[in-house]
Design a protein around this nucleic acid. Structure first.
Lengths: 351, 351
DNA sequence: CGCTCGAATGTGAACGGTCACATTGGGGTA
DNA sequence: TACCCCAATGTGACCGTTCACATTCGAGCG
């Protein structure tokens, strides 16, 4: 009566056995074609392949994962996913992973408490990821990661003195030095630095670069101002700073805060760069059209993402193949050099 | 000799049967605990649960997907993934999906040719997604989707006259009308509109809103200028436009282009809003700190993402439960009202 | 000419869950 | 008291793939 189904099982997608039957071979032969095993006659292979396309066959990833216990999945752990930098890196990660036939899933750290960090990590673990890319570079995330002592390979896109087995980064310190050097070279001596949140590793690195460069050039250093990456904060920080005008330049840890700063400076009736020079960090696409166009440090987020994947996939492959080894491998791969982009927001200080 | 493994199988994660053995129940009972089946004695349940935590048991998603043939995965199809709007929506989608215990994977459409669109869709299909959210709202993507006539539920985050079964959107047309109305109310009559790429559905909707409002108010319309969403384009468009100064206001289809426009206007020695008023669209976080702060239309990207998930998960559930039904359901859910944010980039026209 | 070997293919058992269908053992009811 | 029912649990098959181990067959060789 109700045994309608014209062929195959009720709505189920065609399986390897359906293909096998149609092609007149065993299911194992089909499997071999899928994994291009060497000893398959060309004629057999093409016959199987043609049946596959005819039936619109798609290998079932779940079944494969089940038996191989490999998910071919990379997890990305991130906070601030919608910001330009992370978003660009994620995009690159996905594209690179796709080429290696890996799947990418991301988990957001919503708060910065232990629990939400753990929840995000757990989410990734539930998907049986084979490796992780950490873009949310709060120190706390690393602590959580360490505490769970899972033996997953992971890579962070931020430099960190502490965990340099895993780190891969734009040389933040160098970038900060470039920015600072530029200001000093222009003749500035009263220079403030607006940092990112203090538990962000990259914020720390930029601050360190700033302080080192100031020290090297014997410019008296000022206390860094702890920011939170937002334009909003930059604006208020600028207002505070301007109450005592003991500076002629500011190096902001990212472009958004620089934008806020410029806004505040202009609100105070002053000119950028006439009265005060501002340097940002990141080179977001809008930076070239700020008023004035922003001098900033460009980082190649996409490159970072691509390298993260190659490192991770490489590691995974190596681990499968042989015992663990080659920590210091990929020497040139680990650091990407940032670039100073000079635009209109910096000039020699007024006398 | 080599039968080392202290307990359990070689390195494999604990399975439902391991838990069962330890708890002295059958594997099926463990399964029932996992799916919280009603008829399980409290004592049994808690015993099983405690074994689970002790063994650090994690259900194997692949196995579950295999037998149920449900992946609990939502696919997001996107281009321009790193821009603020899409990125915000994606973030919200992920958070909402997580609550429903769904996994989110995204696929980027890299070019806009048929092939890369097909590749992205195929990628999602390979993961056996149960539904799709389309954020790359090029008309072409829909054509491709229609051409493959898969019976997946999908939702687009952009309004479209054509596919309104699936659409869910900020009322783009209304937003555009609000922006345009604001300019007209201020007294502007020479108003240009800078659109997004012509095959973007939302660009089209905004353009339509603009034209309708202009018509309603009997303001002579001008030919829209086809843009590409970038600040760069806004800049060059501004330069071109300024060669013939037959306007006093511009409504830009997004904030980035508005930024470029302002840059061009200022380069030409003119003032915003003194000489020319500019309105944007999106209200990206930086917009409040542009110089001048940008008048724009805010859309709630996150809300959109959340609703997309609830719609999709709802559909999936409904489809499983009963026959197809309720197309027009969720009446208020389908449209999110945008809001005009008036800041400093608009003013009455100079005489 | 019989034997070994390897290329090409087949067979059956996993993998870790869920599903459909038993199987128990009281408690309420006729 | 016999019966039925339901709550609580168990049993075995199955999902679609890969893995380990056959099997077949012709070529090369002593």
């Amino acid at each position: 009566m109700t045994e309608a189904a014209p062929e195959g099982r009720r709505g189920r997608a065609p399986s390897i056995r359906d293909v096998a039957r149609e092609a007149g071979v065993s299911h194992q032969t089909v499997s071999r074609v899928l994994n291009d095993h060497p000893s398959i006659r060309d004629e057999t292979r093409s016959r199987v392949l043609s049946v596959m396309t005819r039936l619109n066959y798609r290998p079932n990833r779940a079944a494969r994962a089940l038996v191989t216990s490999r998910s071919r999945t990379i997890g990305v752990l991130t906070s601030s996913r919608s910001e330009y930098g992370p978003a660009s890196s994620i995009k690159a990660i996905e594209e690179a992973a796709l080429l290696e036939d890996y799947l990418v899933i991301t988990a957001n750290v919503v708060g910065d408490d232990e629990e939400s960090i753990a929840r995000a990590i757990t989410h990734l673990l539930d998907q049986a990821v084979e490796g992780m890319v950490v873009i949310a570079p709060q120190v706390r995330v690393f602590d959580a990661l360490a505490a769970m002592d899972l033996d997953l390979p992971f890579v962070t896109l931020q430099s960190t003195g502490r965990l340099n087995d895993h780190s891969l980064s734009v040389d933040q310190m160098m970038g900060a030095r470039l920015a600072t050097r530029h200001l000093i070279d222009l003749g500035h001596r009263g220079i403030y630095h607006l940092t990112g949140p203090q538990d962000w590793i990259e914020a720390e690195a930029r601050m360190e670069g700033f302080l080192l460069e100031m020290g090297d050039r014997d410019v008296p250093t000022t206390a860094p101002i702890l920011g939170d990456w937002t334009a909003e904060f930059g604006y208020y920080a600028g207002r505070e700073l301007l109450r005592v005008r003991d500076f002629t330049a500011i190096f902001s840890s990212n472009d958004q805060m620089a934008l806020g700063l410029i806004h505040a400076i202009r609100d105070a009736g002053l000119d950028v760069p006439g009265d005060i020079s501002v340097v940002g960090f990141d080179d977001i696409p809008e930076a070239a059209h700020f008023w004035p166009p922003l001098t900033t440090v460009r980082q190649d987020f996409a490159e970072l993402g691509r390298r993260a994947v190659s490192l991770l996939v490489g590691t995974a492959a190596a681990e499968t193949a042989a015992g663990s080894e080659g920590e210091g491998s990929h020497p040139g791969l680990r650091s990407v050099t940032p670039e100073l982009i000079v635009r209109g927001s910096t000039a020699r200080p007024a006398l």
